[in-house]
Amino acid sequence: MKELKGMREFFTEEDGMGTVEVILIIVVLVGLVIIFKDQITEIVEKLFEKITTQTETV
């Protein structure tokens, strides 16, 4: 009887769900970065170029 109670608690326990959710979110974000790598790189390069040209005028 004690073993059944332990198994029931094991299956109803939800402590590990937070970790799984965080890992899934990270995997999705990494996938998006890989897919849109060229576009992200272009935006960042333009942003730094604009920052550089504007700081030279100050």
Results as ranks from 00 to 15, higher is better:
Q39V: 05
I40S: 04
K37L: 13
T57W: 00
K50L: 09
L4N: 09
F11C: 11
F11R: 03
I34G: 06
K50A: 14
I23C: 08
V22C: 08
M17E: 10
D15E: 15
V58A: 11
T41I: 04
I25L: 07
D15C: 06
T53Y: 01
V33C: 10
D15W: 00
Q39M: 08
E21Q: 09
G16K: 02
L29T: 01
V20D: 05
V28G: 10
E56C: 00
T41H: 04
I40M: 10
K46G: 15
V44D: 08
V27W: 01
D15T: 13
F36W: 02
K50P: 01
E49A: 12
E45T: 08
K37Q: 12
I40E: 04
F11A: 11
I26F: 07
F11M: 12
I25S: 06
T52S: 14
V20E: 07
F48Y: 03
E49G: 10
I26V: 09
M7I: 10
T19D: 12
I23V: 08
I35R: 06
T55Y: 09
E13D: 15
L32Y: 03
E56K: 03
K50R: 04
M1F: 11
L32I: 08
E45S: 10
T41A: 13
K46S: 13
T57K: 12
V27Q: 05
I51T: 01
V30P: 01
V22D: 14
K37G: 07
L29Y: 03
I25G: 03
V20S: 04
Q54D: 14
I26N: 09
G31N: 05
I34K: 09
R8A: 15
V27P: 02
R8H: 11
E3S: 14
M17I: 06
L24D: 10
T19N: 06
F36Y: 07
M1P: 02
K5S: 15
E21A: 07
T55M: 14
I25F: 06
F48C: 06
I35Y: 11
I40R: 01
D15A: 15
E56Y: 00
D15G: 15
E14T: 12
F36N: 09
V22K: 12
G18D: 12
F11Y: 07
G16V: 02
V58C: 03
D38E: 14
D38Q: 12
I43K: 03
T55S: 14
Q54Y: 02
E9Q: 11
E13S: 13
Q39L: 07
G31Q: 03
I43A: 15
E3L: 11
M7S: 15
E49Q: 06
E56S: 05
V44A: 13
E49T: 02
T52E: 15
I26H: 05
T41Y: 01
